[in-house]
Write a protein that binds this DNA or RNA. Sequence first.
DNA 1: CTCTAATTTCAGAAATTACTGAAAGATGTA
DNA 2: TACATCTTTCAGTAATTTCTGAAATTAGAG
Lengths: 190, 190
Amino acid sequence: MKLPPLVQAFVLHFGEMGSRWGINRTVGQIYALLYIAPEPLCADDMVDQLGFSRSNVSIGLKELQSWNLVRLLHQPDDRRDFYTTPDDIWQIVRTLVEERKKREVDPTLSVLRELLMQTPGTAEERHAQDRMREMHELIELLCGWYDDVRRMETERLVQLLSMGAKVQKILEMKDRLFTLPGGKRKDKEG
Amino acid sequence: MKLPPLVQAFVLHFGEMGSRWGINRTVGQIYALLYIAPEPLCADDMVDQLGFSRSNVSIGLKELQSWNLVRLLHQPDDRRDFYTTPDDIWQIVRTLVEERKKREVDPTLSVLRELLMQTPGTAEERHAQDRMREMHELIELLCGWYDDVRRMETERLVQLLSMGAKVQKILEMKDRLFTLPGGKRKDKEG
DNA sequence: CTCTAATTTCAGAAATTACTGAAAGATGTA
DNA sequence: TACATCTTTCAGTAATTTCTGAAATTAGAG
């Protein structure tokens, strides 16, 4: 691996973290390299810089493509495939979350839905279903929130995230504003 | 595996998903079983119900304990260790997120910090650092938000999540309220 | 201390996943 | 068509992870 020390450290770290993130070392290193590279890279660049076999890089790139995490480009008068990551890191995060949801959450949601349709035969099954229902509701809540949030413009999203718990203050303010005289509260308001 | 069909389907699903979640089949199934069981289970219960070897269950439980995802209990006049998950599923999610952050985010954050301290030698390294800085800022933003949110009471949190993008409306309202005459906006307000 | 009932550790087997080199496939050029 | 260049596939190997049975360890009861 012939990379500037700074880049090498970054790339190696992403390789190691790969396993915790459910991707392998090759894929982790390739993505780190693409992310940090000042310009698009072709497969042989990656072979040179990371020291993996050509076939391994090919498979890694295919994996990254299936995650929609890389863009494929072509240079004029060059038949090779060049790859980059999006310039906008927020776009990367959005894709990452979207794909992880698709792979890690949606299948569970559909299994839960299916199992909740069934009629429980025993008390144990009834309890199991109650527990599944709690889980299903929680995931639905999170997915609903996510579905709203991902439509927000990045600027708004950053604004919201920066506020953190201060949002709560504003909600309380809103509550006060919309609280009817006598302490009764307009429910399901907002 | 001798479990009611509903429970079995649930347990098997979590075993399969385990690999996508960075835990293995055994751990996934054990956790699913504990989550859904109406009462605490001992290791031999799990051996009976899941069909794994005793040692495998022991290792799986150790893993779950290292994640803080199970509670250890004792019954009177019984020397065996019994395990449960928290009753409150929100507590489970909180722990899960906390632990995943600890394992999957914090190490990256500290590597990034370290690399950003260094002085870049080349233009390439300077670009790499810029890119790392973007990533670092984004992660810091998300962590700051998380740090705020995790302190919120569950009820408030649910309220907030239920609102989804409607929060935006309230922010806009707030903006209007605090906008100075002439269209100038108090910046850094929220 | 000894016996018993539980849990943990560990060496190795089994299964899975990652990786390679070589061959095949695809695509553009002459 | 043949040739050159790049990409993908694939069979086999290497490495890693998971899992087991047996042995070691721990801890309460007599």
